[in-house]
Design a binder for these strands. Structure first.
Lengths: 259, 259
DNA sequence: CTTGACCTTGACGCTGCGTCAACCCTCCAT
DNA sequence: ATGGAGGGTTGACGCAGCGTCAAGGTCAAG
């Protein structure tokens, strides 16, 4: 006959845990000896260890009690579910490990090389330093949130720069934002190009839009970053609305052209 | 400028979590707009994602705030510590996975093959079915608690059965417990053999005793199991005490022989 | 003007115990 | 027999990290 302390030691748990399991009805209360002490048979150790094995696997105690009352087939099924959870959890921790590694790699200075290459490419087609910095800030945000998927996206972005229209757009925007003229006439040209690009994208990729709501977040994020208090940005949005498009990075056709 | 909901969505956390981080001072409160809404700059998303990355790695929030205030070197050091924790945690989950697998393999019927072989060996040297069952129950307990280490112990147990004295002991004990005589004279013979074995073990393995307190638990466990209300067991303990030994499975020499 | 989707603060709930407090039992050495 | 160490007993509060009402105020769209 075991005391609660011995039982706990054998099972490798604390006395408090055993009492807790009694309280919630997970482990049946044993007989008491004349002085009121709980007295356990050795089989209680097996039950207790079974409980701990499941609890260590991350199974909530409430579910453990249901499992112990279940039949063998249901129990085996539950075990399989738990095993899958464990597998997922291990995978989660492994990606988490990779992510914290990137965290130390220089706060936010060290962007993935793919992004750095993209920024270099931007510079080489004539984008201003200011423009490149703005892009970099945006990609830092994106890289922070989707460190794994960003690699998938860069090839597309780099490919876009083969389009002469896109190159022209970046140059015009660079000129606009490098000066300090608020109502630059080139804003209209930029808006024209953007509308044209939006038109093309709209015609080609209607299907692509239907992917996932998740995929829209990056664009919204860049949107929000861009609108950081510059009247020229506001003016550009206005010009786009005139041309029948709302949004900034991810355009949407407006219902009908404003009067 | 982002609302709290947008920020939360971008960072992949809940609104409640963001407010919680404000409450505990982990994330600085932003300016409010005229209506009292919190308004975030895009950089807040980076801070928030950094926090989540660490929190997902299992770092307590209180420690995260200290980390964010720390210098680069201390930060990098902390990251390394976290990485180690993650590695350990992954390993823990992997062993946990193995253990729950064993749980489903037939409750407690499927002992490790090494133990099954040992029990067969016991049977073949003439131990009674009842004796073998008692041993099996004991090893079920041990296997539940130390599923990995039990494999290390079995070879020693099997080797013991090569000792003719041990074989004799098992046979005598089998005879004693197979009948229902309470004061079997063969109890004395059993006690003699056990005392002799204890003497040998004491002489040979004094050093081994100094291993770890942890290693004593299995023996204590078997002890506790054995003393499950049989007067013959009590009698045997008494006879052993007379011969200067206490305990059952793991013997200790008493200070001086009782009068 | 309403409706629905946001935002605000405040407060309680949840898990799985750790950690007092205040007291009782048992055993061992003196 | 006596005292102290080292068990045991119940009861209660504390902790992290939010989830989840409650009871409102705000904003954009129809």
């Amino acid at each position: 006959m075991l005391t609660i302390g011995q039982l706990a030691a054998y099972a490798g748990v604390t006395v408090r845990a055993v009492r807790h399991y009694h309280q919630i009805g997970l482990l049946p209360e044993p007989e008491r000896d004349p002085s009121g002490y709980r007295r356990y048979a050795a089989t209680a150790a097996v039950s207790l260890i079974k409980i701990r094995t499941l609890a260590d696997a991350g199974v909530p105690l409430s579910q453990i009690s249901r499992m112990l009352e279940a039949e063998a087939s249901a129990f085996a099924e539950a075990i399989r579910t738990i095993d899958n959870h464990l597998r997922d959890e291990i995978e989660r921790l492994e990606t988490s490990r990779r992510h914290i590694g990137q965290l130390t790699a220089g706060d936010s200075l060290a962007l993935p090389p793919e992004v750095a290459a993209y920024l270099d490419r931007l510079r080489s087609i004539g984008a201003s330093e200011r423009m490149v910095e703005a892009e970099r800030d945006g990609w830092i945000l994106v890289a922070a949130r989707w460190p794994d998927r960003i690699v998938e996206w860069m090839p597309g972005k780099v490919a876009q720069l083969d389009d002469p229209q896109v190159v022209r757009l970046y140059r015009v925007l660079s000129e606009i934002f490098d000066g300090d003229v608020e109502d630059d006439p080139r804003l209209a040209e930029a808006a024209d190009i953007m509308a044209c690009l939006a038109e093309q994208a709209h015609a080609a990729g209607e299907v692509i839009l239907g992917e996932e709501a998740d995929d829209d977040l990056p664009h919204d994020l860049i949107d929000a970053l861009a609108v950081e208090s510059d009247p020229r940005v506001e003016r550009l949005r206005e010009l786009m609305r005139e041309r029948g498009w709302s949004g900034w990075n991810r355009m949407e056709r407006l219902a009908e052209p404003p009067a």
